[in-house]
Simulated assay, not measured.
Amino acid sequence: MKAFNDPTSRAYGRLTGAFYFSIAIFGAFAIGYVPSQIVTGDPATTMETLVARRGLYNAGIGADVLVMLIEVMTMTMLYQIFRRTNETLAFAAMLARFGMVAVMGAMLLFQAGLTGLATGEIAASDDIRNALAGLMLEIHHAGVWVWQAFFWMHLMLLGTLVLKSGLVPRLFGYGLIVGSFGYVFDSLYSFAFPEADWFGTLRIGFLAIVTLSEVGFALWLALRGPKDTAPLNPALAAA
């Protein structure tokens, strides 16, 4: 547990980076791969696929839960690293990321409910089951739009802290700030402008920027650790 004692140390920064990078790995599986194998445009087909690949679906839920647990450590440790740069911004960044995780946790309840519908554990006619499944999928999509708003705020604040702190290369800060708009654009594209193909292409570019920036930031912390800085302010250490 000594690695958690000093937020100014390279060991602490490397552990933070390792947690952050593991989110990318498990999140890519849970959020990227599993839905592409299970969810279709038709609720009835989605439920049939879910039953056929229930093990994969449950593994996706398990990976989501693991991501959320790792997120708790990551957001806390990022706060500890950057609070000596600006405690207000660091705390706001942590709360924004917590809001994202809270929404994701609520979304898992609907994913579990979809399992009950698909396996017949919830007694209902096929029409009712399909209608409920469609509703749960729509609520899940809405949840994505909401958590992306929280995550946009977090990345904006984190990028600002990176620029002000001098702990890691400033390039990551610029990438986090600029690329964060990819999440806003993705929500707007899905919710308000689904017919605007140019807008869909634009958001992909920004999402690529933020993905590279996040992964690069995490790897830099994990492999190099933050640059040497002055010891933590005693007043903050006692807080």
Rank of each mutant, 00 (worst) to 15 (best):
Q148N: 14
L171H: 12
R84L: 03
L207V: 10
A92K: 08
Q148I: 02
L219R: 06
L176A: 12
T119C: 00
A208Y: 08
T115Y: 10
V144S: 06
G32S: 04
G99D: 02
L132R: 12
Y79P: 04
I122M: 09
T119A: 05
L232Q: 11
N130I: 08
M107N: 10
L207N: 13
A238R: 13
G55A: 10
A106K: 02
M94Y: 11
A63V: 04
A44I: 05
T46G: 00
L212Y: 08
L78F: 15
A133S: 07
M153R: 08
E121C: 00
A239I: 10
R53I: 03
F98Q: 09
G32R: 00
G62P: 07
V101C: 09
F206P: 05
T16P: 02
L155R: 06
P169M: 12
T46N: 01
M77L: 06
E87P: 04
A93H: 01
R129P: 00
I204P: 02
D126L: 08
V184Y: 14
A196K: 13
G200R: 01
P234G: 04
P7K: 11
L117F: 07
P7C: 07
A237T: 08
E121P: 00
I23V: 12
L157T: 04
G134W: 00
F191V: 12
L69N: 10
A222E: 11
L161Q: 03
V103Q: 05
R83C: 09
A52I: 07
Y33T: 02
L157I: 08
A123I: 15
I204G: 02
L56D: 06
A11R: 14
R129M: 01
P231T: 05
V101N: 03
A93C: 10
P35G: 03
Q148F: 11
T85K: 06
V101M: 14
T160C: 11
I209A: 04
W147G: 03
A118H: 06
H140C: 04
N58S: 11
L163T: 06
L219H: 09
T88M: 14
T201F: 12
G120D: 04
M153Q: 06
A124M: 11
D126G: 03
E48R: 13
A235G: 05
D42C: 02
V72R: 02
L135D: 14
E138G: 04
L109N: 06
T46A: 00
L223N: 10
M47F: 06
I70F: 09
D197I: 15
R83Q: 13
M68I: 12
A237E: 11
E87L: 08
S190R: 13
A133E: 00
P169G: 13
L78A: 01
L137N: 02
G179F: 02
N130L: 02
K227R: 15
R203V: 07
G205F: 09
